[in-house]
Simulated assay, not measured.
Amino acid sequence: MDWQMRIEDEAALEDVLSIPDEALRADLAAVPGDLLVLGAAGKMGPTLCRLARRADPARRVIAVARWSEPGLRERMEGWGIECLSADLTDRAALAALPDAPNVVFMAARKFGSTGNEALTWQMNVVLPAMVAERYPTSRIVFFSTGNVLPMAAVNGPSPDESARPGPVGEYAASCLGRERVFQHAGAARGTRLFGIRLNYAIDLRYGVLHDVATKVLAGTPVPLAMGHANVIWQGDANAWALRALRHADAACPIMNVTGPETVSIRWLATRFGALMGRTPEFTGTEAPEALLSNAAWAFALFGYPRVPLDRMVHWVADWVQRGGRALGKPTKFEVRDGRF
């Protein structure tokens, strides 16, 4: 696809993030029926819902959240999405939600985990168990994180799906717990499931690229201890999550989802400096290991991401330099001890 050179504003950004392709339309056609998205008001949920709606305008798409962001519910309803309000941790509220043959589970807790570990485990382990009990006959795609994997040598192979998990910190451990309770639902009840181990989705308003570009523009030193990362355009990650509904199975396959490059943070900052007329500053040195994952299986099943890395870099540089809105949700990609 021939992507535009600039994304002017948030309306244009949300449009670009939700452009479907024929592969998505074909895979959704294989899983007919309503789509229920739980935890739909986060960074990725709104455009995932819109993407599904645009790919199949006749399908009922139901978004469930608490709707704390002003105007978001109304904006999504304007896209033709049915929005319901519910506290998913309330069993009565969960039971009252409509049945649906297709479910995408996006509710999770990361930031603020340190110091409130009990709530993190409630959201990341207990709630998934409740959802699996509520929707035993549905296809369920759920999001996990590459944080469940061990750090890998930058100059060696990155872990694929066969790697033994090695979570660092309670957040990562609780996300492994989420995977395990969904796997148990598949084994115990035959629920068809598919897990998405995501490594750093990119939107112009947040993400590793946004974090680095913002520091370069401000003259703030870019931390190098976690010197490499994997990234993927949010629109591609959402498309693959929706396409995964077709592949949901009681065996609960769990897939690494990220881009093909091992991105050097130093290179990234230098690239942003060249685009924005700044000389980046750095702090620390690159460790020999980083949080990386091998997404070869995803590429074999879904193809390579549609939006290439350098296009994302140009978009983010332009957005940040023009003062485009930020969500105020740093990725904390530089954290190595698992304390979020």
Rank of each mutant, 00 (worst) to 15 (best):
G33Y: 10
S174L: 05
Q122V: 10
A26E: 15
P32V: 02
L97H: 14
L193R: 02
E69P: 05
Y171L: 02
G235D: 08
T258L: 13
Q4I: 13
P221L: 13
L84P: 07
V263R: 11
A40F: 04
A40N: 03
H247A: 13
R246I: 00
D15V: 03
P221T: 09
R53G: 04
N155L: 11
A40R: 01
G186H: 04
L48T: 11
A172G: 13
R66L: 12
V31I: 09
A290L: 15
G112F: 12
L119T: 15
D203K: 12
I254K: 00
L268P: 01
Q122N: 14
W267K: 11
A172T: 04
A201V: 07
S264V: 14
L198D: 10
V316G: 03
L224V: 02
L268D: 07
D90P: 14
A40Q: 00
V181A: 04
R134D: 13
W67K: 01
P136A: 07
R197W: 01
R192Q: 14
F105Q: 13
L94C: 10
I232V: 15
A229C: 09
V257F: 01
A26I: 05
D160V: 04
R325T: 06
S138V: 04
V64S: 02
Y206I: 06
D87H: 15
E289C: 06
A269G: 03
A100E: 09
A163E: 15
R246T: 07
D2W: 05
I196E: 00
P288H: 14
R91Y: 04
A95V: 03
Y200P: 05
R59I: 06
F299K: 05
L38P: 01
M123C: 14
T114W: 08
A65D: 08
D9H: 12
P150N: 08
G277S: 08
L127H: 09
C49P: 06
M226F: 06
F299V: 00
D99C: 11
W3N: 01
S162N: 08
R50N: 08
H184S: 11
W233Q: 08
V125C: 13
G328L: 12
A187S: 11
G112W: 12
G259M: 09
N116P: 04
L38D: 12
L38Y: 08
L119G: 07
A296C: 14
I202P: 02
A239D: 03
R59F: 03
I140C: 04
P165E: 06
L127M: 12
T262M: 12
A96Y: 06
A40H: 01
R60P: 11
A153W: 09
T283L: 13
E133N: 11
Q122M: 03
E289I: 07
A225Q: 01
D9W: 00
L88F: 09
L275Q: 08
